[in-house]
Design a protein around this nucleic acid. Structure first.
Lengths: 211, 211
DNA sequence: AGACGTATAAATCAATTGTACAGTCGGACA
DNA sequence: TGTCCGACTGTACAATTGATTTATACGTCT
């Protein structure tokens, strides 16, 4: 029942999971269309025939990779909001924003994936929005709405603007990290740079902390 | 010397230019790797052998398309800043931000291109940064710096953060327009939505207009 | 009118891709 | 010990790709 691989029981990770992890990296780097299942298999060091074997199609492999990325994000946000339980809305929103910035800095594959898929109509967009993005959007919108009600932010703007302004301001520097390095010499993934960006995005979106 | 096409001199546009324009669309939609020169040629209605004939390689065609996109942006920003000549730094920066938002709404191909190429090291990134992005970055940084000096914005943050926060907040909703539609039902390219987004981004980055 | 060069088309090539398939190996269980 | 089944490999195939080459048609200049 354990379904341990024949090859060497020393590796507890399981070939399938390693394929998914590699797929996330490659899909993030190249985008869905340009990513090749052969490269993914080659990174794991297995035969490329294993991909149709485990996942049937490239698309299903992609779904598994996306599930992995979003599970990671959900865990991060959960933890961040749990830490701030009992605090005011502004403080919790601040935690959320900073937590999101740190997350995309730690897992740039997530931003790459979203920037790749969010722009093309098709079954993959439908799948990712309905399964992953919508719950996230509603959760974040709720919180932003609460902060807005407390008066820090201008009143007349629809939540969708805040959402994309937040996600865009938070993520682009990491999505285009290579450009940023070439352009300014700054490495966005440097710990201090990440923190500076987190503080800036928080300040831009939520205004100065009261008190 | 006029090099008018043989086929029908009625179309003054020239096959080559029409290929470049189509290439910009296709590269923006699919990304460099996934875009096929055959589809580009097919959109124009010419044989795909014409692309190596005019441009030698796919990469050079891409460069021509990028030049076209940035020429468009430069003209827009030039016009916007000319309009605001003589105004204060805050007002000019406001014009710039709103102008940029309107531009990416009008020419989403620009954002798509940048989001695609800004993330991968390689000759295309070097080319686009050195040729197009750096002048833009310096121009915008200058203006933001001037505004910052006037005190509206927090002092301790490096320009690179503002730059990517601005570009990200301004562009993402248009880059991921399909996602936005699916997620919220809102069409980002609707004129009123564009204006609302422009106002929001201006307010977030530059603070309330003094006076 | 004839030569020439440019613009376009058609056919072709080698490389890469996702997927299908047939086989091999090794442990579990009888 | 022998059979079975899941994990894995290697090969093959059709489709698509960027690029090369060859052929054709038209305008221009002499």
């Amino acid at each position: 029942m354990a379904a341990v691989a024949q090859r060497s029981r020393a590796e507890e990770v399981g070939t399938r999971d390693r394929i998914v992890a590699a797929a996330l990296e490659v899909f993030a780097q190249k985008g869905f269309a340009a990513a090749s299942t052969r490269e993914i298999a080659s990174r794991v060091g297995v035969n490329h025939g294993l991909i149709p074997y485990y996942f049937r199609t490239k698309e299903r492999l992609w779904q598994a990779a996306v599930d992995l990325a979003f599970a990671d994000l959900a865990a991060e946000l959960e933890a961040v909001l749990a830490e701030g339980a009992g605090e005011g809305e502004r403080a919790r929103a601040g935690r959320l924003v900073r937590g999101y910035v740190r997350f995309v800095a730690r897992r740039p594959a997530f931003v790459h994936l979203m920037h790749d898929e969010g722009r093309r109509r098709g079954p993959r967009l439908r799948w990712i929005v309905d399964r992953h993005v919508r719950p996230l959007f509603e959760r974040i919108s709720e919180l932003l709405e609460a902060v807005r009600a407390s008066g820090t932010i201008g009143v007349e703007t629809a939540p969708v603007h805040f959402f994309y302004a937040l996600v865009g301001a938070a993520g682009l520097i990491f999505h285009q990290a290579e450009e940023c390095r070439r352009l300014t010499g700054v490495d966005p993934f440097d710990a201090e740079v990440v923190e500076a960006h987190a503080r800036l995005v928080e300040a831009l979106l939520l205004g100065p902390e009261p008190g």
